[in-house]
């Protein structure tokens, strides 16, 4: 008889560091009780964080797999579990299980490609893992463009890392934008979909996109106008999940489970699936 630990049973992990990125986004550094990185993952995969009595929820792993010391999660304050997370202090233990999902095809389809990352708001969280992975194995990929937009300068997640590291590297072009003009902002002002069209990228690029559904819908339209095909565009979804194992039955888009068949989808797969997300 099988007496292995059920996949629904989490392990205990510890938050060692909490960084306030924006007024409503904090980044949590998580290690196992042994002080080591609790699990290996592929960029784009997710993990279930939970506080007993509060709830359990799925979050993208923000750190790159190349980071060997810890996992990071950038989390926006919006519901039960995230409110709790935003109130804790370093040293707090919580439970963790995963990693879940397919992740981005960084070691297959992306190899040798020119990559265009498009992110809106907290949508940068899952992409940061890929971007840092690509930066680490820079020689395996072509050029890198990053279009990132947020409501305001203060809402740009990882702004410091972007300025001090990403912007300074050769072959990486960062295009930042905010929704409304701001006195201390000299960069671009406007929504991401329009900015993408203005930038008129070369259509040979592979696009990796994450953000609010409305941004994805309009940006996709813009990309198609520029001549991109849907099979060049990857995105990552998130829906309500309880098990993350493809069994609890609620995160499906048509016959695909976001937890198991996703969260990363190539957009040409989505044309045959309902618009329920």
């Amino acid at each position: 008889m099988n007496l292995t630990r059920d996949p629904l049973i989490p392990m205990v992990a510890q938050v060692t560091d909490i960084r306030a990125d924006t007024p409503d986004v904090k980044t949590f550094r998580v290690v196992g009780l042994d002080g080591k990185k609790p699990m290996e993952h592929i960029p784009g995969q997710c993990a279930m964080l939970s506080m007993p009595g509060v709830g359990e929820a799925l979050f993208s792993i923000t750190s790159s797999p190349t980071n060997e010391d810890y996992l990071e999660f950038s989390i926006k304050k919006c519901g039960c579990v995230t409110n709790w997370l935003h109130a804790i202090e370093p040293g707090q233990q919580l439970t963790l299980r995963g990693p879940y999902g397919n992740g981005f095809p960084v070691d297959t389809d992306f190899l040798g490609k020119d990559l265009l990352f498009i992110a809106g708001g907290i949508g940068l969280a899952p992409l940061r893992s890929v971007i840092n992975y690509v930066r680490h194995y820079r020689e395996r990929y072509g050029s890198v463009d990053i279009v990132y937009g947020a409501r305001s300068k203060e809402d740009l997640v990882d702004y410091q890392e972007i300025l001090t590291q990403w912007c300074r590297e050769d072959g990486i072009h960062v295009h930042l934008t905010i929704d409304n003009p701001q006195p201390d902002w000299e960069g671009h002002v406007g929504f991401v979909p329009n900015y993408v069209k203005e930038l008129a990228f070369d259509t040979g690029k592979t696009v990796v996109m994450c953000g609010p559904p409305i941004m994805i819908k309009f940006t996709l339209a813009g990309l198609e106008e520029l001549g991109f095909r849907r099979d060049q565009v990857y995105t990552t979804f998130e829906l309500k999940m309880k098990c993350a194992l493809g069994k609890c039955g609620r995160c499906n888009i048509g016959d695909k489970y976001v937890c198991k068949d996703g969260p990363v989808f190539r957009l040409d797969q989505m044309t045959q699936l309902p618009d329920e997300y």
Partner: peptide, 21 residues
């Protein structure tokens, strides 16, 4: 039942439920 948790201060402990034997 899947598991029981004890929460004390900042610590958390898990004891999984037993599957039927």
């Amino acid at each position: 039942d899947l598991a029981r948790f004890r929460v004390a201060g900042k610590t958390v402990s898990v004891s999984p439920a037993q599957a039927l034997q």
